[in-house]
Amino acid sequence: MAVPDVKEKWTSKINVVTIGAIKDEGGTRGKTITVGGQTTLPFLDFEGELPHKAVIAGFVSDTPPDWPDVIKNAIGKEINSPVEWAQKNIEEFKCDLLSLKLIGADPNVKDASPADCAKVVQDILKAVDVPLIIWGCGDDEKDNHVLPECSQAAKGENCLIGSAKESNYMTIVAICKADKHKIISEAPVDINIGKQVNILLQDAGYDLKDVVMYQTTAALGYGFDYVYTIFERARIAGLKGDNLMATPLICDVAGETYRVKEATSDEDVLPGWGKLEKRGPMWEAMCAGGYLQAGADILILAHPQAIKGTQESILKLS
């Protein structure tokens, strides 16, 4: 008896989003990064097209993040300088692009001024020639001042700016339209709000073909499965013709992983769990591996071993 053909016939395609602009396109990047364009679920290359592999964005912040020393040491002393950290991410860790989080702008951290943040953006753009993702600090009020200045400092570089939420999308749309950047739309592990934010962006006159969706990110063991199923559901809807869900997906794996005890507490706190030196990057890499399977297009990673492991996974699976 013949083996039945179980291939799914999808009717639609995930949007293709390119980040970064080279000289001819009005920027100064040495290369651009393109994600999306899938016509089937992750890695099912027998069923459809998967024209662009998932990419790794190296985590960088203006102020060193509050991570355990074991993790910071593995990255190196460069973590204290956003420019040097950015360079190391690209030159040594071989990340595809960079993801800059302006943690220092947070009023509860350093309350760095918008001008200071914009300076960091400019310095990084000068020091490396890969495309850049720029995030605010997460405080909406502060970000409303920080992101416009950073956006302007990177004008024409076709950055990916994060993030647009129901509360602030008008500002993000305005700056991204003016300075020619792409948008990260954010929802708090909620597919319905995710769709609604995309509707709002569309209503505000922003083309959803220039949007990457961020369903926040849950670390392994902390609601990972919720985000995983949202990714699956969003991707399936996108492939079935729901244009509002046909966006590439981004995950902040490093940012979330080094907040949970399994990736931040060493053996003295968690006896029998093994050394944090090894467990931390494993937790990060496993989380990234899971999101890859779910359909993530951009993974933000930090630990060199997690980056290396994930690069290998992407190559093997693609």
Partner: peptide
């Protein structure tokens, strides 16, 4: 069969 969003009616007409 489809994913809910508050603006689903308007979104259908516009997209």
């Amino acid at each position: 069969k489809t994913i809910y969003a508050d603006g689903y009616v308007e979104a259908f007409r516009k997209s």
